[in-house]
Computed example of a mutant assay.
Amino acid sequence: MRVGEQSTDPIDQVLGEVPVPAPLTPEDVRLAVRAVVVHTAEEWPTGPLCRNDGASYPCRLHRWGRRVLETHGLNERQIEALIRHGNPFVHVPFPFTATGPSSARPAGYSAQAARTNGLTVRHPAARVVPPGVRPTAPGRPVTPPVTAPRWPRAS
Rank of each mutant, 00 (worst) to 15 (best):
L61K: 11
P23R: 13
L24S: 07
F94R: 06
L31R: 15
V18T: 15
W44S: 06
R134C: 06
G108I: 10
T46A: 11
R66Q: 12
T71C: 06
P21R: 14
R2C: 08
A22E: 15
S103V: 10
P10T: 08
A81M: 12
A104N: 13
N52S: 13
P19V: 07
V68F: 05
P149I: 02
V37D: 14
T97H: 10
R66F: 08
V14F: 14
P45T: 01
P144N: 09
P145R: 11
V128R: 15
Y109A: 10
H39D: 03
V133L: 15
A154P: 08
P26D: 07
H62G: 08
V68I: 05
R2A: 14
G86Q: 01
L61R: 12
P93M: 09
F89W: 13
P144S: 01
S7G: 06
S155Q: 05
W44K: 14
P106C: 00
Y109G: 00
P131M: 12
S56Q: 09
P135C: 00
R34G: 15
L119A: 14
L15D: 13
D28K: 03
N87W: 10
A126N: 08
R66N: 02
A41E: 15
A55W: 13
L69V: 07
L82Q: 05
F89N: 15
I11M: 09
R30S: 10
P95T: 07
T147D: 11
S7W: 08
R150A: 02
I79W: 05
V20E: 05
S56R: 06
L15A: 12
L49V: 09
G4V: 03
Y109I: 02
P95K: 04
P141Y: 05
T40C: 15
W151F: 13
R153C: 05
L24Q: 12
G139K: 00
G139T: 05
V90R: 11
R105I: 00
P145I: 04
A22N: 11
S103D: 05
T116H: 13
M1I: 06
T25F: 07
V3I: 15
Y57V: 01
R134V: 11
P23I: 00
F94H: 15
P88G: 03
H91P: 00
Q6E: 15
G16T: 03
N87I: 04
E80I: 02
A114G: 07
P124D: 02
V121Y: 04
P130I: 03
P26A: 04
A126H: 08
T71M: 06
S103F: 02
V133D: 02
L31Y: 14
T46C: 01
E42C: 00
A137V: 09
G118M: 10
A81D: 13
H85W: 08
Y109F: 14
E27W: 07
L15Q: 12
L24R: 12
A125H: 00
R115S: 04
V146G: 03
C50R: 13
T71V: 07
E76Q: 09
D12F: 03
E5C: 07
P131V: 14
T147F: 08
V29A: 08
G118Y: 04
H62L: 03
S56F: 00
S110N: 06
A137R: 09
P93I: 09
G47W: 06
V38R: 02
E43W: 04
P10S: 01
V121H: 03
V33Q: 13
W151K: 11
R140F: 01
V36T: 13
I79L: 04
W151P: 02
P145K: 04
R115L: 10
V129P: 11
